[in-house]
Structure formats: structure tokens, C-alpha cells
Design a protein around this nucleic acid. Structure first.
Length: 198
DNA sequence: CATATGATGGACT
DNA sequence: GTCCATCATATGG
């Protein structure tokens, strides 16, 4: 099982592209975490792209540049950020030294459901249908800053799972941002019940 | 040290 | 849809 996981890990060239393209292509991929001996994780069903210094919603924008110092890392690196009492799980993307990221907003649980339910103390779609919920479900916090999801030794990985070329992807504006761009930068799998909002 | 700030979640109308 | 508790950071005194 573990060997199969490592064979399917997306390599870091996947992340060396513009944030909106990576956000789109992450849908239908598998996010897994090695949790002690067990594997927890699920299929990514909702993402948002944050484009960098030119994007008013991005942490690397203007005054918030200090907050975004961790945004200057290699593509594929994990970037964790606290908002409203919730840890948000991001992956650095684009060329090196471009402070852009993709936020993972929702997953469909596939591994370690019993562990996830114990941590969340709920059942059903509320387990992982939001960016703060999924980090609680997978026990992700700032300890995981700096790991690279393309590195087989990392506790967090993203795997190829299935072809999504026949699945309908919807685009909307980003949720909860103070100042969004005109381009819709939120992506989700149409009809998937684990998506946070329609 | 004090306070303002959210890329939220959950309870409620 | 609205309201507000939340809490790690950033920033200013």
C-alpha cells in the first residue's frame, strides 16, 4: 500500500505552474497524511488560487508581506496559516520566488475515517467540507510548514488518483476574501457533496 | 503588553 | 441569508 502511494506522488513540476492551473488540476487528486502508523486523507474536491503580490486577497500582498515570508519557498511546499482560529492548508506554487499558493478548501474522506470522526466529533459532510474542518480532521497545523508534498519522505503527500477530464468543474469567486479579483479563482467538483458551498 | 485582524465555523433567522 | 466566538499573528505603545 505504501509503495503504491509513493509511486503515485505528483512530482514538483506539477506545482511549477500558475496558481489557477494548479488549483484546477488538484481537483480529484488524493491528499494523504502519514499519521503515526495509519494513513488519513481524502480526495480534493475544492480549491482556491492565490496569485501573489498583485492579488489583494493574497497574504503576500502589500503590508501583509511579513506574514507571507513562508510564501517564498519551493513549489510543492506546505504553507500553513491561521485565520479565525483555524489552520488553513496551502501548497506553494508557480516558479520559485513567486509567493503564490493554492488553498485546499475541502476533501472527500477516503482513509482513516474512524480517526477523522474521532477528531471532528461529527458525522457526515461536516467532517471535511471546509478549509478549517479538513485541517482538524487530518490534524494539520503549523508543525507541517515547509514539508514538500512531492517528497516521498514528507508526512503529507498528494497523489494521482483518477482522470477528471470527464468531470464537470465549476468556478466561482473566492469565499470570505475582503477584496477579490474579477477572475473567479475558486474551483470545485460539480455535484460533490463534500464541497463547502455551491 | 494591548489591541486589531481575518483565505472560518457554527448557530441561528 | 446574518451574527459572533474564535486565536495565532502582526503591529504599535
Amino acid at each position: 500500500m505504501k509503495k503504491k502511494f509513493s509511486e503515485n506522488i505528483l512530482d514538483n513540476t506539477f506545482y511549477k505552474r500558475e496558481a489557477d492551473k494548479v488549483a484546477y488540476d488538484l481537483l480529484g487528486k488524493m491528499l494523504v497524511k502519514k499519521d503515526e502508523e495509519e494513513i488519513v486523507g481524502g480526495m480534493i474536491v475544492e480549491t482556491e488560487a492565490y496569485l501573489g503580490p498583485e492579488d489583494p486577497a493574497c497574504i503576500s500582498y502589500r503590508k501583509r508581506r511579513r506574514v507571507g515570508k513562508n510564501l517564498f519557498g519551493d513549489p510543492g511546499e506546505v504553507f500553513i496559516y491561521m485565520v479565525h482560529g483555524n489552520w488553513l492548508f496551502n501548497i506553494l506554487v508557480d516558479k520559485k520566488q513567486v509567493p503564490a499558493a493554492v488553498l485546499i478548501r475541502a476533501i472527500e474522506p477516503r482513509y482513516g475515517l474512524d480517526i477523522i470522526m474521532r477528531r471532528r466529533m461529527v458525522v457526515g459532510i461536516a467532517l471535511t467540507n471546509g478549509p478549517g474542518k479538513l485541517t482538524k480532521a487530518l490534524d494539520i497545523d503549523k508543525r507541517y510548514n515547509g514539508y514538500n508534498v512531492s517528497d516521498p519522505k514528507s508526512p503529507l503527500n498528494i497523489l494521482y488518483y483518477k482522470d477528471i477530464s470527464n468531470i464537470q468543474i465549476k468556478r466561482t469567486g473566492r469565499i470570505g476574501v475582503k477584496e477579490d479579483l474579477n477572475t473567479p479563482l475558486r474551483f470545485y467538483i460539480a455535484g460533490n457533496r463534500w464541497v463547502s458551498r455551491k
